[in-house]
Amino acid sequence: MKRLHALSLHLALTLPAVALALPTVAFAAPQGKESSSKARILAALDLPSQAHALRESGVSDGDVKAALKAAKKHKVTAGDAAKAMKEAAKAVKENGPVDNFGAFVQSQLDEGKRGKDLAAAIRAEHQARGKGKGKGKGKGKPEGKGVPDGKGKPEGKGTPEGKGKPEGKGAPEGKGKPEGKGKPEGKGKPDEKGAPQGKGKPDKGGPDAKGNPDKGGPNGKGGKGKPGSKGGKGKPGK
């Protein structure tokens, strides 16, 4: 008995709700059909214009035809085809045309892409393989300028500067070669440690070291430090 009461109570609560819901569903369906049919017709109107715009943007007639044939083959609606063409024309303006656009659309349709997915694939393809990005609204100009200015000038300056300075420094080194005689300077190192070296240098090194410390230092030929210190050290060592 209790079960019967519970069942009747349940039905009493749920049936009105179902009864209320049914009419809304029944009316909603035809409205959706009407709007979608109208939307499809309105979208289809754009197809010739979008195809024309795509050709105008630089895509070959063959590619446009191939894309349209592929769309028809895959039973893509004229409206969806128009949207894809619109997206392609936009992508061409931004990134330049791609090779074999028709074949690309065919392959994407073969993969089952439609609507937004197809539009996204077209956009991505143009971003990746678009030719003539520089021909666009102004993206190319910065790129064109950047390459020569950025790379050229610094490189040009760098090479002469690099060569000039080391050469200038190298010359003194060349003069320093005679200082190679100073290699025995190694012997002089211990002298360096000894404070008296300074005193010894002028005496013995005087004649030999004249060239190095006197001329080399002030004249700047050999560099002050290297020639002077080496010459002074080595010769006294001998």
């Binding site: 197809l47 349209l68 085809a81």
Partner: peptide, 22 residues
């Protein structure tokens, strides 16, 4: 709707027709 879509496709495939239609 179907015949109209077919007509739109046909016009779109022809450069001169699509230009004239536009």
């Amino acid at each position: 709707e179907a015949s109209f879509e077919a007509l739109m496709f046909e016009i779109a495939e022809d450069p001169e027709k699509s230009k004239a239609f536009t």
